[in-house]
Amino acid sequence: MLRLGPHISIAKGFYQAAKDASQIHANTFQFFTRNPRGGSAKEIDPKDIESLKELMNQQDIAHLLAHAPYTMNPAAQKDDVYAFAKSTFSDDLKRLEKVPCCLYNFHPGSHTGKGVEYGIQRITTLLNDVLTGDEKLHVLLEGMSGKGTEIGSTFEELRAIIDQVTQNHILGVCLDTCHLYSAGYDIVNQLDDVIEQFDQIVGLDRLKAMHLNDSKVPFGSHKDRHEIIGQGTIGIEALSRIINHPKLRHLPFFLETPNELEGHGKEVATLRALYKSEA
């Protein structure tokens, strides 16, 4: 079964988000834990969560993915920015205990000129301070495109973070097709090689989800510009091979394309038509 869904706002509640997902025949969705450009978080309504759980059972919705806000920079050198990242990360994990969500995704962050080793040390210190090992979800490092001073655009950097975290049994990875292609991993012409490289360096057992996006920019550009499925430089044929690949097809896929709900519905329909039943 293809687990596929878009990013949906929870401004009107989790139940409404799940209804929106089911309306376009999605069976999962991603949501921001709070305002992606700010620090506020809406209080979670227990009744809303109960309604969400009922609808998830009725519509077979699973593998919800919570996305940390963009303003959270765990690699920051500025103390106030780092403190915000730490408090937000900790608060998100506590809040998500109330939500039937098994995945929490975050951007590793930017070292802002201090160097990759410094940034990784900051990230792993934060994770070691916050993670208890008793979390009931997987915390996912998102692979990045490598723009500016971003950390996490190479498999080696993701591995280095994982290796330095004590409770790394709950750490996983979310790969983004647009980011991968922009970072220089040729998923269009050498998908098998990229998968093998990831397996050798990080381990496929760590790969828990994928962001499925086309790209507005060329291969290896190190820019983060998502495009509608089939309208970018990656193309529909390559994306079809990804969702059907025997080592990837079991994963939940999340759309982050520049589309509204109706447009996401068309993308879902297109991808479902391309998904092949297992033999």
Results as ranks from 00 to 15, higher is better:
247 K>R: 15
145 S>D: 11
45 D>K: 05
2 L>D: 00
45 D>N: 12
148 G>K: 12
60 D>S: 11
249 R>Y: 09
56 M>P: 03
229 I>K: 00
58 Q>A: 14
130 V>K: 02
259 N>R: 07
252 P>S: 05
202 V>Q: 02
166 T>M: 11
118 Y>A: 10
27 N>Y: 01
58 Q>N: 14
245 H>A: 13
202 V>N: 02
268 V>M: 00
30 Q>E: 12
224 D>A: 01
176 D>N: 04
41 A>S: 12
145 S>R: 00
231 Q>T: 13
139 V>C: 04
53 K>F: 09
279 A>N: 14
90 S>D: 15
267 E>Q: 06
92 D>V: 12
237 E>I: 15
135 E>Y: 00
90 S>P: 11
271 L>R: 00
46 P>F: 11
128 N>E: 04
116 V>L: 09
108 P>H: 06
95 R>S: 11
217 V>Y: 01
247 K>A: 14
41 A>P: 05
126 L>H: 01
224 D>H: 00
156 E>N: 13
43 E>S: 11
263 G>R: 00
79 D>S: 14
209 A>N: 04
221 S>V: 11
206 R>S: 01
253 F>E: 00
134 D>N: 12
184 G>L: 08
62 A>M: 02
246 P>T: 10
146 G>P: 02
171 L>T: 10
235 G>N: 07
202 V>I: 14
238 A>R: 08
12 K>H: 08
170 I>T: 12
102 C>N: 07
143 G>K: 03
16 Q>F: 10
248 L>T: 10
200 Q>T: 15
56 M>T: 06
202 V>H: 02
169 H>L: 07
124 T>F: 03
201 I>G: 02
48 D>G: 05
212 L>T: 04
23 Q>V: 07
66 A>H: 05
165 V>Y: 02
114 K>V: 11
30 Q>M: 15
222 H>I: 03
81 V>D: 08
15 Y>G: 04
252 P>V: 03
245 H>P: 13
263 G>Q: 08
176 D>W: 01
210 M>I: 13
122 R>I: 09
242 I>A: 02
254 F>N: 03
108 P>K: 05
39 G>A: 07
185 Y>D: 09
18 A>I: 15
